[in-house]
């Protein structure tokens, strides 16, 4: 059987398409198994920590610009703001966050702390109404 140039091109295209679909499927199937603590200041991620890799509880200091700071106590099972020099102290009074989707916000410092990932069932949600 003789292959014409058109045949070969069609086969190549089909192979490329198959290749891309496999890549696409892998990309779709990607899960965020890690539970990460994400710290954003003014929309920029300044810290991204894998919670499962934390051995002992530790304190980290986040500089929020203009001399503003927040100190977080982080542990394998969650995080809390223990000190900050913001005027309203709302972040310090906020409850400790322990599960994906929870946040602590410090509005004066434009700081968001949140937990992401942790593929539990029912955790597969797009947003939370709160």
């Amino acid at each position: 059987m003789k292959l014409k140039i058109g045949d070969i091109l069609v086969y190549i295209f089909i192979l490329i398409l198959i290749g891309f679909s496999i890549l696409g499927l892998q990309w779709l199937g990607e899960t965020t198994e890690d539970r990460r603590l994400i710290v954003e200041v003014d929309g920029e991620i300044v810290k991204s920590i894998d919670l499962d890799e934390i051995e002992l509880p530790q304190d980290i200091r986040i500089e929020a610009g203009d001399g503003g700071y927040n100190i977080l106590r982080i542990a394998r099972d969650g995080a809390k703001v223990i000190e900050a020099n913001c005027p309203d102290q709302v972040c310090v009074r906020s409850a400790r966050i322990v599960v994906p989707g929870q946040t602590i916000v410090c509005l004066p410092h434009r700081l968001i702390i949140r937990i992401e990932g942790g593929g539990e069932d029912g955790g597969n949600i797009d947003s939370i109404a709160s």
Binding site: A95, V99, G101, Q102, N124, I125, D126, S127, I128, A129
Partner: peptide, 10 residues
């Protein structure tokens, strides 16, 4: 899929 906040997540 929109989650409804657990009022006592702590």
């Amino acid at each position: 899929r929109i989650g409804i906040q657990d009022p006592r997540s702590e």
